[in-house]
Design a protein around this nucleic acid. Structure first.
Lengths: 221, 221
DNA sequence: AAGAGTCTGTGAACTAGTTCACAACCGCAG
DNA sequence: CTGCGGTTGTGAACTAGTTCACAGACTCTT
């Protein structure tokens, strides 16, 4: 077991309210796995292997068409979990999980997790909240795809990805390629390129090296 | 209280495993409400009022753009519930609920529901499963919108709506207008009209009065 | 520092889907 | 039966977005 696993576990929202000694037991039972960039952590159609907790790195949840087009459903960061859905309803996975950087995950076996869920009803609530949150975001994305044009989707996505930096500016730092952004908004890479140009010409965004700064004063970016 | 409420309640999946006497208490606490066709049961931005259980009728969950375009996120039928999301995370509603026919709902107050959830952990599991199911469907819809053309989306949607009838044929009976179908797949009414024509010309579907029969033998409808 | 691979910008042709406009149709209230 | 609101079919013009093609910029690696 990795030495600093325990403090990391304590920071996972899913394990909030779980007493320290219990976490130690969990850490002993769980397995750590490492994946290089671009590795497929789970593939569509897989039967569930367990609950994954992202310890470091970054993963994307994607769907792919036969022609190779892909859409990113979500990007997950450390302390977030995935794999719970297939776990809970025993249906095969419906999306792929791909490492966007070198990442390590903690894998909790299905049975292990289920018995935990029974003993720690608090965890069930965290899961409910997370699922509700994700469903809300998914519904919004459906709305965006059906009701907005590419310009609007790109603008909204940037806003969603931005986090305040030290100077209080809203910054998208992710080091996100135009292709990834295109896969998030469901548009072609070229279209995203043109849209970013437009947005920066109107003054809604500007570039600082690899980062994108967002002008919050524009109400309708 | 409506006389045959109790048997109806017993059929609600959310209340599976809840002992009869408890259900009686619940029925006493809950309120019934009626809505005519087209009525807005909940509007976007509302604060949560409680958990709604659909007793009879049919509702749609929709998002609307400023220009009046709308996309149907889901259609709910009796025994299904809604309103749980705003309830659980206290965020304002993100979609509208509109009656598609004359409908009656059972409204359980927020506090009521929450204390139930505490006392009946079984209910939490049902909710988790339902949310997981809905999230799965939402993700699929995102994939459809981003990766398929209108033809594919209409075909898939029809398949999803179809239910086997007495003769074992897969039938969409819902009495669904082309406009509604268009709002489900995220396309224009005209496009749906043309697509249905195509699908029936190729022999993937055909019409029997108001019903649409789906040819299952076509693997790739 | 050179070369390979990846990412970005942009013009031009193309196409899926929208929008508009209108005729025909259906079902039902009076 | 008659008329009227909602639904459907279809042509034609238009447009947002895709696809293709290619040039330039950037960034690793060795």
């Amino acid at each position: 077991m990795h030495p600093d696993l325990l403090p990391t576990l304590a920071a996972v929202p899913l394990f909030a309210n779980i007493p320290q000694p219990e976490l130690v037991k969990l850490a002993a039972l769980a397995r750590q796995e490492n994946y290089p960039k671009h590795a497929e952590i789970m593939a569509e159609g897989d039967r569930s292997s367990g609950l994954y907790i992202l310890l470091s790195g970054k993963v994307k949840v994607v769907l792919r068409s036969e022609e190779g087009k892909e859409i990113i459903l979500a990007i997950l960061n450390p302390t977030e979990f995935f794999g719970e859905m297939a776990l809970l309803d025993d249906a095969p996975r419906s999306a792929d999980i791909v490492a966007m950087a070198s990442t390590t995950v903690l894998l909790i076996a299905k049975q292990e997790f289920k018995s935990w869920l029974q003993r720690q009803p608090e965890m069930a609530f965290v899961i409910i909240k997370t699922l509700a949150q994700r469903l809300r975001e998914a519904d919004q994305k459906i709305g965006d795809l059906a009701l907005m044009d590419v310009y609007g989707r790109v603008a909204r996505t940037l806003k969603g990805l931005a986090k305040p930096d030290i100077q209080g500016r809203m910054v998208v730092s992710e080091n996100l390629s135009q292709q990834s952004l295109a896969d998030i908004v469901g548009a072609s890479r070229e279209m995203v390129s043109r849209t970013l140009k437009d947005l920066s010409q109107v003054g809604h965004i500007w570039f600082d090296g690899k980062e994108i700064i967002i002008n919050e004063r524009a109400e309708r970016i």
